[in-house]
Structure formats: structure tokens, C-alpha cells
Amino acid sequence: MDFITALQVLDSTVRLSTPLLLACLAGLFSERAGIFDIGLEGKMLMAAFFSAAVAFVTGSVWLGMLAGIASSMLLSALHGLASITFRGNQLISGVAINFLAAGMTVLIAQDWFSQGGRTPSLIGQARFEPLTLPFAEALQGVPILGPLYYELISGHTLPVYFAFLCVPATWWILYRTRFGLRLRAVGENPAAVDTAGISVIGLRYAAVAICGLLCGIAGAYLATALQAGFIKDMTAGRGYIALAALIFAKWRPWYALMSCLLFGFLQAIALRYQNIDIGPITLPVQFMDALPYILTVVILAGFVGRAIPPHAGGEPYVKER
């Protein structure tokens, strides 16, 4: 593999990692507050559709993104209602949300656009354009670093930079603010938080709302930046890969960045090469597809360090009387 090919693979790694990263951080906020969320996939899908649909109709990618975020946050509110207010099973609620999104997006897309469950292609202002960072053109001649800067760091769309900035922001919020401390506490020991006179329900709703916001951006990125429009089931399991990345990262922001880059890299490789020859054996493309899931199972099995979820995760909080 020569330098330029390597750069291209890494470049596509960055682009493919972005939705994973946003969804993974979304799940991190929710699960750190004690609300399991396997509905990341559904929220992204819903946001992808509404952002593409509204961007197409209005011609503005920003309005599209707002619509996507709103739809994703609506599903988050539903998840909160089921799992916080009515103390239902969070996993079942997540499953329901995934199916709701899978069905509703196609149903509405067919009703609005009659194109077999997709939106028309987005052009011009209805999409996020790649940004060229300062001096990217000028420095292109500099050996190694020039192309590195031009290909890898410059030339991405706005949500990509946003997603990567979200990592330090998440770290800061979780570990350096009062809200973050409380959020983590509510996922470990909600009774203690309640005793301190802080609303468990309020905190958990806040976490679920942040989760919806980030999933909304992830979905909007899929439909208006990575691709040009919505197609049926376009999230293609990314929500679950993000969930896998979250476990891989053991619910920590910087590790989430690493695991999302790794899984994005695997996707980029699988996209570019069909089968990979490593000396005597050939890795089939299906193996590359399954690798994130296999790695997650290995991590979950505790063979490579133990992945321990937040202590109160999945448990609805019932106030003592």
C-alpha cells in the first residue's frame, strides 16, 4: 500500500467513524446516567430521513439538520417516557424505537416522495459541503505533511469536525462539571443522588435528551453529508456498531474515539478491498464485516480487560417511601 492509498483509506476512516462517534457519545451520555439505549439505530435513521426530507423541501441543510434533531429527540422523549416515567423495560423500549423508525421512515418517504421509500437526491445548499482548511492548498507541496494535512485533516464536512470536538467536550462535561458528576452518579447510585436532593428523573431526562441531540446530528450527517439523500435502512447497523464501540471503550469518551476510529477503519477497509490476503490465508470480506461484533463479544467476555457497565444501568429508579 503506497502513501496516497493509505491516506485515502484513513480519509474514509474519518468519514465513516463520524456517525459512529456521534452515536457512541450519545449512548455514552444515556448509559452513564443509567438508561440503556439500544435505540441509537432507530434515532439515527429517523433523523437521517427527516433531515434529508426537510433539506430537500427547503433547500437548506441547516433546517434539515434541525428537523432531524427534532425527530430524534422526539424518539428520545418516548424512550424517556417509557423507561423513566413509566419504569418500563429500557431494552424493550429501544427495540420498539428501532422498529418504529424503520417502518415510519419508509412509510412517510413513500407518502411524501413516492420513490420507493427514499428521498430525492440532495444537491447544492441542501448538503454539507467539504471545508478546505486554511493553507491546505498552499501547503500541499510540502512532502508527507502537506498531503497529510490536505487529504486527511482538511476537506471534511462540518459535522466531522464537530464530532471530533465532541470528544473533549464530553470528557469535560462528564469529569469537570457538576452536571457531569451528577450524571455519572445517577448511573451508579441514583438513591444517593436523590438523597442529596437532586432530581433523578430530571437528570435522566437531560441525559436522554443529549443522546437524542447527538443521534440527530449523526443521522443528519449520514443523509446530508456522507450521502446525498435518504435511502431505506441507510443506517445499516451503525447504531449497533456504536453500541459495540461504547462497550469496547468501557463507557469512556477518549476510548470511545479510539474504538470508533478502529471500527470506522474496519469499515473503510471492507469498503475498499473485497478479500484481504495475508500471506497464506485470505480474509473474506464477510469476516471484516463481522469483526467489530466479534471484537465486542471478546471484550464482553472479559478476556481483554473487563467491561463493567454503569452500576444502575437498565434499572428504573423507584423512590423509597
Partner: peptide, 11 residues
């Protein structure tokens, strides 16, 4: 299917 799961399960 989603609504049935939602109402009979989560809600």
C-alpha cells in the same frame, strides 16, 4: 409491530 412492542412491553 413496533407499536405492539411499545405498548405491551415498554409502556
Amino acid at each position: 409491530q413496533a407499536l405492539v412492542i411499545l405498548f405491551t412491553g415498554a409502556l
